[in-house]
Design a protein around this nucleic acid. Structure first.
Length: 271
DNA sequence: ATGGTGGTTCAACCA
């Protein structure tokens, strides 16, 4: 089964690109981020006509996540649970913990049942500040959820725009990101805490090379200069890692007309 | 230090 993550940066503006990609890449399941649409305004029909089941968790103007699947989506959960008050600030700058639509999960049953989570982790800039506090609090909630999912001993896939550059080798110009919320040590440590639970960075199980990027800024000709970063990831549980047969980045999509600033990252899983 | 580009919604925010 081929499973992909794609930050589309606006489903309405990107609809044709996304439909082309579904045709050419043919993922069985896809998690989308930054749909920037409410559940009511998401263009469902083009996806359903192409044989995809669809679950959205959207909001007006910003954020928003979705899951597409050729197989039915079961037990859909929208929103990341809050931690208790003992675990630190769980609310964002707007006072809303789950007011931002950044998390969706569902089960897809092929030959195995897979729990698939799509996430759009807060950017966190500028750091320090309330937005960075929100990022770290959100990552603490994510860690709690990741731990609970691990306890099921089922294959779990955490895919999306993590807004974390895990290591310096994941940036063309690491020094330029040293003080950015995507690369600050607390961001990297919170990302590693998920790995330390036992999850694996799927791409790194197959490719240890430098120069693997999933995002190039629209500004300063970042794509033309290959000034990229790797921030879109699949973190997979041990039971899911057992089934993995490949992973990759669809870099070429960044060169198309009116692309997203992100490209899809996929995994292939024997399930 | 600033501004560069793009999406959404409609002056400003987010990335």
């Amino acid at each position: 089964m081929r499973i992909a993550t794609y930050n589309v940066n606006g489903i309405k503006a990107r609809l044709e690109r996304v439909l082309e990609w579904l045709e050419s890449s043919a993922p069985d399941v896809a998690v989308l981020q930054e749909i920037k649409a409410t559940d009511d305004s998401f263009p469902r029909e083009p996806f359903e006509e192409r044989g995809y089941h669809l679950a959205t968790h959207g909001q007006k103007s910003f954020n928003g996540v979705a899951i597409l699947s050729r197989l039915p989506l079961e037990d859909v959960v929208r929103g990341l649970p809050e931690n208790g008050p003992e675990s630190g600030p769980g609310i964002g700058p707007d006072g809303a913990g789950d007011g931002q639509a950044r998390w969706i999960e569902a089960t897809v049953v092929g030959r195995r049942a897979l729990r698939i989570c799509g996430l759009y982790l807060p950017n966190g800039n500028p750091a320090p500040g309330p937005k960075y506090d929100y990022k770290l609090a959100w990552m603490a909630r994510l860690l709690t959820r990741a731990r609970a999912l691990l306890a099921t001993e089922e294959p779990v896939l955490l895919g999306g725009d993590w807004n974390v550059i895990p290591e310096d080798r994941d940036a063309a110009r690491p020094a330029a990101w040293a003080l950015d919320a995507l690369a600050l040590p607390p961001s990297r440590a919170a990302f590693r805490r998920v790995l330390n639970l036992g999850y694996h960075d799927a791409l790194r199980l197959f490719d240890q090379s430098d120069g693997l990027y999933s995002y190039w800024d629209f500004q300063r000709a970042a794509w033309e200069r290959n000034d990229g970063i790797r921030i879109d990831h699949w973190l997979v549980s041990p039971q899911a890692a057992d089934l993995l047969t490949g992973a990759g980045i669809e870099r070429d999509l960044r060169a198309r007309e009116r692309p997203s600033d992100h490209v899809p990252v996929w995994i292939e899983i024997d399930a």
